[in-house]
Nucleic acid binder design. Sequence first.
DNA 1: TAGATTGTTAATCGATTAACAATC
DNA 2: TAGATTGTTAATCGATTAACAATC
Lengths: 218, 218
Amino acid sequence: MIAVRRNKISGQASEPTLRRLPGYLFYLKKMREEGMLNISAPTIGKELKCDPTQVVKDLSVTGIKGKPKVGYNVYELCQVIENYLGFNKPNEAFLIGAGNLGSALMAYQESQTLGLKIIAAFDVDKDKVGTQIGGIHVLEYGKIFSLADRLKVKIAILTTPNNVAQWVAEELVDCGIKAIWNFTLTNLDLPGEIIIENTSMSAFAAVLLRRLNDSIIK
Amino acid sequence: MIAVRRNKISGQASEPTLRRLPGYLFYLKKMREEGMLNISAPTIGKELKCDPTQVVKDLSVTGIKGKPKVGYNVYELCQVIENYLGFNKPNEAFLIGAGNLGSALMAYQESQTLGLKIIAAFDVDKDKVGTQIGGIHVLEYGKIFSLADRLKVKIAILTTPNNVAQWVAEELVDCGIKAIWNFTLTNLDLPGEIIIENTSMSAFAAVLLRRLNDSIIK
DNA sequence: TAGATTGTTAATCGATTAACAATC
DNA sequence: TAGATTGTTAATCGATTAACAATC
């Protein structure tokens, strides 16, 4: 029997690897600014506190080639990671629900690299509509239908109250949205092809608190 | 040779389990409000899209006992999870850096269960000092030393600019802070006993973008 | 050349999933 | 009783870590 061998496609990174890459990128950009030309995996690993072998493996998903004894070219490395993650492309996104967390994310992307660019926010609150937060206009929710179609936006950040999240998400899918970054606690039930990235702040708090309580007991 | 068998301590939950527990809790509280008395692992699994066996295993860390064919008591389940995570205790925290993300988290905890309670915020910006965000006072950064000591606060949320994060973190450790929820991109280098929970927004964006791009190619 | 580092393959480790006996 | 569900133990799966040959 002949085994069929799949070609190794560059898009094979595991989720943990994907989560680590922005961390590498931030550090490498800092090193690039400081004028460093080459960097080795052990050096990166020491700084970010992870195994050098893992660094090598993580970086290999971008297809970069390093030189034994020398390491990787810092400038090239920054470029391939940015390119691999798609951080150098516009990645335009809508934000729905300009409440507390919503307006924060809008303001946040000014100072930090979020990876994507919020081009408009939507809300039903008449007081918020017409205002600007972090340079982003808050529009009337109803306008999302025509705008999504016109601008071909594929990504939505969902920061509405929990009780309307499912309903809004369904409308987003109707608008042609393909990926939803969900900050609500609601478990969205949507067609399988829609990409959902759930980010719940309390999940982090849970890990932190548990580790803290464990360390106090010991 | 006699094998030494460790007693199964309740604090043995893995990190993935810990991250899932707040999700269960939110759903169960909703069910409790709707008057549901008992719930089975398969029912929870169907809703949260995870394996029923995993639900059983996750819930078992709290020490709760279910009844075959009936499931778990919803009220009791909410209580034991809240208790296990420590979400029912005060968990008082300081927030340092009342900038964009910082003020967001302050406002956020009013509407969502964060798991911990921000009792004061600190900033060096004279314009922010004296104001109130989400009901939390912003105090002068210098005051943190005496207050941390007096109030015995053990948790700090770090939302300063990246370039001062390491420096501030070291001062927090001097203040007696034991756990730092780090929202900056800086890799904090602190004594080993300090608990650090790194939360970088761009890590989520990376996973979302990659999955989106992969799905478009296919 | 000698030695550090890359890059790959193998071993380990831990989490998820499957199997199944116990039980209500 | 019959059957669904718990709860535990075993099998699987995937990620991390270790080993090592290639190479600059």
